[in-house]
Structures are given as structure tokens and as C-alpha cells.
Design a protein around this nucleic acid. Structure first.
Length: 277
DNA sequence: ACCCAGGGGCAAG
DNA sequence: CTTGCCCATGGG
């Protein structure tokens, strides 16, 4: 197995993998191991280099979104002190390119769950229905066609609770052709969101997670309880409707609002602070 | 024991 | 158009 060295400026592998966008990478010594496509990949950062084993440099660079113009994105960040602190503390975090179904499915299971448990459910589902990866302890995230043949009880046994019915339903919609994620990828963002929201267990927040983390819509802002707190604190603590929160982000965060959101989300969690504290 | 978690859906006001 | 409540489960 040959190692590749990729030049990776403005990139922080650990921040990227721990920021709550992807749920299956595991620490491995000074690096990380996970799946890109159907290959087990080991990645280790050494300064501005990324050491890659298990796939080609092109594939890894695309997965980790090393082409995103991070300097430009930072220039468009808000200038308030909390956003500046988030940008500094989380520097190098990138919004990676995840597979459509894997990302959508994991966020369907995410509702009212902590990040650690989303990860646990993802591994349980992979273990039970995922295909083995050659020479790896990992299993693929099962395709919709495979999960469509699961049972609600089987999914509940993976810890999904009431989310089991939603994931099963969504898998069936895709497996039988009622939903076509490749077609969704070609739609403008508002239409794509509306279509995704037809799936059981997919509302605006989950649809926005999929749009940002898998469909490359970097202006989209998923608003969960954490981001809701951050935004309200930025707005002086007043209570805002969902529509007002959306408008606030669109106004203040611009074309890369999803990136801003990711930094604010991760920084609020690791610093245990909110704007104005 | 108690609270909360990267929500969705539906009924009721 | 909002608000209230239920849906299960595990971690802190």
C-alpha cells in the first residue's frame, strides 16, 4: 500500500472530522481511518501536508474539499468577536463532500440525539446491513435498497427508537423510485429542499444538513438548538421565529453561510460559550 | 433522579 | 401563522 503526500494548506483534519458533519471516522494513532467510497482510507496531517493511504490523492482531495476557497470564505465571515474567535479556534475546518444517501440517512437518525450517539447508531447500522470492505474493519453504509429490506424492529435494535420508521420509510422511497437523489442534486436549492422534505423524518433542518454536507450547497444553514442559541445571543437574546433566524443568517453570513454556521456550531460546543459571554 | 440531545409531525389554538 | 405534545434512547 503506497502513501501519498498531498499539499493541504488551510486545512485541519481533526477539526474537520470532529465538527459534527461526518460520523464514522476513527482516530488511529496520530491519524484517522474512515471510508471514502468503498475504500478504507487512512489520513494523517503533518503540518501543511496530508498523508493519505488507501485511495488516490485526487479522490482524497475532493472528499476533504481542499478546493474550497477558504481564504475567500474567511474574508466573508462576520466581523463580530464571537465569529472571529470561532474562525480562529476552528481554522482549517472544511465542509467535506459526503455521499448523498449516507449523509441524509445519518441525519434522519440524528433528531434529538447527541453527536456521540449518532455515531454509535451509524456503526450499528453498518455492522448489521453494510457490505464488508476488503481488508478493513469498516463496513459500508448500506444502500437504500438494502435498508428497504430491513424491519423497523431491526432498526430499533440499533438504538434508533422512533427514528426507525423514518429511516426505513426514506430507504423505501428511494429504493422504489419515489425519490431520486441524483435528480435532487440537479435542482436549485429551494426546490431540492422541498423535494427532500417529502421523505419521512426529513424536515427543514435535516434537509438543510444534507444540502450543506452532501449536495454542496454552501450557503445553506441548518439551524439546530446550538445554532439557535448562538443566533439569538448574537441578536441580543431576543426570541426569533424560524423565518427570522433564516433571514438573519442570509443577511449576515452571505454566500458561504453554511461554512459560518459550521464554525459557530463547533466553536460554541468546544468553548462552551455563546456570543456576549 | 434529572436534563438534554445537530427534530419531525400533527393537532389545537 | 404559531404553540404544545409525543415520539425513544443514551450520555452527562
Amino acid at each position: 500500500m503506497t502513501d501519498h503526500r498531498i499539499r493541504a494548506t488551510d486545512f485541519d483534519l481533526r477539526m474537520t472530522l470532529e465538527s459534527g458533519q461526518v460520523f464514522h471516522w476513527l482516530p488511529d494513532g496520530d491519524g484517522w481511518v474512515g471510508l471514502i467510497g468503498n475504500c478504507e482510507v487512512r489520513a494523517e496531517q503533518r503540518g501543511e501536508s496530508l498523508m493519505i493511504r488507501g485511495t488516490t490523492p485526487d479522490v482524497a482531495a475532493r472528499y476533504f474539499a481542499l478546493d474550497h476557497p477558504l481564504r475567500t470564505i474567511y474574508r466573508r465571515f462576520p466581523k463580530d468577536s464571537f465569529s472571529l474567535a470561532a474562525r480562529k479556534a476552528c481554522a482549517g475546518t472544511r465542509i467535506i463532500r459526503q455521499p448523498h444517501w449516507e449523509c441524509l440517512a445519518t441525519f434522519i437518525t440524528s433528531s434529538m440525539k447527541q453527536v456521540a450517539h449518532i455515531r454509535q447508531m451509524s456503526f450499528a447500522i453498518r455492522e448489521r446491513w453494510g457490505d464488508r470492505v476488503q481488508g478493513s474493519r469498516f463496513r459500508m453504509y448500506p444502500k437504500p435498497e438494502r435498508l428497504a429490506g430491513a424491519t423497523e424492529a431491526g432498526l430499533r435494535a440499533c438504538g434508533l427508537g422512533f427514528r426507525a420508521k423514518n429511516l426505513l420509510g426514506a430507504a423505501q422511497w428511494i429504493a422504489d423510485g419515489r425519490m431520486d437523489l441524483d435528480a435532487v442534486a440537479k435542482l436549485p436549492t429551494p426546490a431540492a429542499r422541498d423535494v427532500l422534505c417529502r421523505l419521512p423524518g426529513v424536515g427543514k433542518k435535516v434537509a438543510n444538513c444534507a444540502l450543506l454536507f452532501a449536495f454542496e450547497r454552501l450557503d445553506v444553514v441548518p439551524i439546530d438548538v446550538w445554532i439557535g442559541r448562538v443566533l439569538r445571543a448574537m441578536h441580543g437574546g431576543s426570541k426569533l421565529t424560524a423565518a427570522e433566524l433564516d433571514a438573519f443568517c442570509a443577511d449576515r453570513f452571505g454566500d458561504y453561510a453554511g461554512y459560518v454556521q459550521q464554525y459557530l456550531f463547533h466553536y460554541a460546543r468546544i468553548s462552551k460559550t455563546l456570543p456576549g459571554q
